[in-house]
Design a binder for these strands. Sequence first.
RNA 1: CGGGGCGUAGCGCAGCCUGGUAGCGCAUCUGCUUUGGGAGCAGAGGGUCGCAGGUUCAAAUCCUGCCGCCCCGACCA
Length: 438
Amino acid sequence: MRLSRYFMPTLREAPADAQIVSHQLMLRAGMIRQEAAGIYAWLPLGLRVLKKIEQVVREEMDRAGAVEILMPTLQLADLWRESGRYDDYGEEMLRIKDRHDRDLLYGPTAEEVVTDIFRSYVKSYKDLPKNLYNIQWKFRDERRPRFGVMRGREFLMKDAYSFDVDEAAARRSYNRMFLAYLNVYARLGLKAIPVKADPGPIGGDMSHEFMILADTGESQVFAHRDLVEMGAPGPDLDWDGDLEGEVTRRTSLYAASDEMHDTARFEAMPEDKRMTARGIEVGHIFYFGTKYSGPMKANVTGPDGKDAPVQMGSYGVGVSRLVAAIIEASHDEGGIIWPDSVAPFGAAVLNLRAGDAGCNEVCETAYRALAAAGKDPLYDDRDDRPGAKFAATDLVGIPWQLVVGPKGVAEGVVELKRRATGEKQSLPLDAALKAIIG
RNA sequence: CGGGGCGUAGCGCAGCCUGGUAGCGCAUCUGCUUUGGGAGCAGAGGGUCGCAGGUUCAAAUCCUGCCGCCCCGACCA
């Protein structure tokens, strides 16, 4: 992409409404524009990042055996009356009437719709397990939206729903999602820890929140240090097998957010293993049994020939929130530092003297080579001063910067800078391209 | 929803208390000079001062109502 043709409206100063660093940087980098409280338009740069995160989530869901669908944003109130949630959900639900005076709502979540889909087709335990997910915009009419897309009213969520014949099978489904989530966060360059969450009316230990560690996080997190250093399980698991061991390795170590914190248990750990940090909640998974399948009569016939409500769980990732969460976890005074996996562009080519024949030629060569290698380069070909280009490229956080100036061109070198470390080196173009392309 | 704060040019702000022709910095446009970390000089454009009433000879400024936005709290991907 040539910057001269792109739409990347960066700001030197942050709008006063933005309080937290991710919100400020998203506005300054021209990623989003606020349209109303908690409602944002995604500008090209923001959209690119959102799509990349979405794709990472999609790949890990698919790997773990989930199947993507797309459910509507508008849902029928009648379905929610079946589950009993229409009246319970309260003011957070945006209710709408259509021209026939029929009650609709903008979905805050999709248990009812997915259960309706499931029960229409699946009748036998032989068709289980199933896991259906979608990545779709949700709306929750929050009392107080805040912190940019971190807590918007409209937000992009990946929500998966598992269906199993009994509780033991449901637990296996739960375990798959538990481990898949850890892989998602690792690929996004985040340190995430699963903390025990309030399991609600079902009880048991089948609900976890995933917190990523960032100094500016909203919640306090207490955890065993080994849990943080354990890392993600990686893709090479036996996803159809018994994952209980992998999960237990992690859930047996202490981890809790402030509301579930048990001071006595925490202090029972050796002092050097106690970790206290700030966290941002970026995922929540739970098993809820027959809470929806019961009232909505989503029954399957078991091996014994008897019908029983299917066992369900649901699994949410805040995709749009992750954009902000990654920035909270990865930025400096100069701006955003994107992990390579979600950077809006893989590399930037900075032409310090647009119009100079030598600089133009080197830049064009670099730009074409990077594009051909699938690095999705952003070429700053604007007629602007070097300082402005450096500042803008740092601000938007492109991982690699290939700096082409007249001095270097005369000597046959370019400068390669790594955004994350600030490390710079002068080297011939071929070597620089090799370093980026790998 | 309780408490607090703010709406003046694209962004950041001053002016309001004490009513009298709407200002500054950045950004934008033109010209010249510049060109390795958000340039300099000269000139230019851009604002129904959130909206509606009211008081007054006169309202960004005073009064009333409404709308919008932000922060703290209780709830949440």
